[in-house]
Design a protein around this nucleic acid. Structure first.
Lengths: 243, 243
DNA sequence: CTTCATTTGTTCGTATGTATC
DNA sequence: CGATACATACGAACAAATGAA
């Protein structure tokens, strides 16, 4: 029997907030991977020597961090450890902050832009002379939607995800996607985009992909700037109006 | 009386996992800011119409995300919404993943480097002709420690934090600090740094600050690359040895 | 389709540790 | 020191969801 219960003192002292750590230790010791099942709550009560309420709170904590994933009526498995908690925290911060609800969004957009520029070399290398039917279709649909003055949120998100998918660095794609989620969750506070901006952004997506395929790093950088220009411009005018 | 309880159906259907959302709504509706106290658990039970345990789990969830902060024996206040949850998730992912425990660390280091390069313009602008006694002391202590072949973790973290502190974009500094935390938490798996690398990294810090003060963006970029070079080199050799 | 065991979700009551006054 | 208010912990019971017989 594995002795996972803290072997220090027999008393209840210093046992608080440790149950989650014990479960994490259990995952590591048993070499469990994302998707593997975790002992039931009742089993964990026995193995860790704590009550079910404590086990439940610990599991809830880990589920919030996407370290485990709970399925009602089925059980609990090791989670994907995605960046969901980051998104949730920053989205709430974005809608909470008092006067600077725009400042928070501006920070996010600026970081997205900086990020895309920082990854430019890697993206261009990965797509050089690499036609990608999926991305091409997304670009076509975005331009089509822009002409009809309709938004294209899903295609936009998918575009950025697929653009970074071929990178070795998996974390980069996840971070970009996470910031996209934060961005689009806070965006509605800013009002709808203008038709002209819709078209400029759609065209910038097209330019980004073309530049990457052509291996033209500078053109890619210019397209990235064009991509975020309408948004940053709206943020400037809105914050100027508010200030 | 505010009707915070879900006003949809009278039945208990679809109430799961919503308690945390209700508390978030309560924070927004009452315009509470970080540091403001939120109702006690018993009060929340009445206002939300759920039991104590559910409220506790919801609060634990929000505390994990640093949306609220629980103070034993005192109460619960609105939290700082820091990036702690991101750190915790990625640290665990870094120590969990099977063969690629180094790949996760490499991703983090690469992103730190890319980030520092992406923020180069803003950093140089902020520090141009701006002497900073605090940063100077940190640099001096790092070089001193490197000469004595001693690590200088705290100074390193503080250096990067203070370097980004003057930026308008607060999120940038927090993200860099978060990635520093992840980095240093997973680092021990790699073994200790060589004395020569300690000196190179300390010198790179000094070069970064000098270049920023001089307004030399290119020199700053070179110093950033030098800063991460020893680490990336160790990651390459270690992963080559493992593969 | 129904029944049943398993597992998580919710609730209540009670006792204990801790900080503030 | 005591009193109060609060968070922490435990255990038992029942509800709801899932999957398999």
């Amino acid at each position: 029997m594995n002795d996972l219960s803290d072997a220090t003192s027999s008393e209840s002292r210093m046992r608080r907030s440790t149950t989650a750590e014990q479960i994490k230790r259990l995952i590591l010791l048993r070499g469990l991977h994302p998707g593997d099942v975790i002992p039931t709550e009742t089993d964990l009560c026995e193995e860790l020597g704590v009550s079910r309420s404590s086990v439940r709170e610990a599991i809830r904590t880990l589920a919030t961090l996407d370290i485990v994933e709970v399925r009602h009526g089925v059980g609990t498995v090791v989670g994907q450890m995605s960046l969901t908690p980051l998104v949730e925290t920053l989205v709430f911060r974005g809608v909470l902050l008092p006067g600077d609800d725009l400042a928070a969004l501006r920070d996010v957009v600026e970081l997205r832009c900086a990020f895309d520029l920082a990854l430019a070399d890697a993206v261009v290398d990965a797509h050089r002379d690499q036609p990608n039917e999926s991305i091409s279709r997304l670009v076509a649909r975005m331009i089509e939607s822009a002409d009809k003055e309709q938004p294209y949120l899903l295609e936009d998100k998918q575009f950025h995800a697929e653009l970074l998918a071929p990178l070795k660095n998996q974390l980069a794609g996840q971070l970009v996607t996470a910031f996209w989620d934060i961005h689009s969750a806070v965006l509605p506070r800013l009002g709808l985009a203008l038709p002209a901006d819709l078209r400029q952004t759609a065209q910038a997506h097209s330019d980004m992909f073309d530049a990457a395929k052509a291996g033209d790093r500078d053109a890619y950088g210019r397209a990235v700037v064009d991509h975020y220009e309408p948004l940053l411009r709206m943020l400037e005018t809105s914050s100027a109006k508010a200030g």
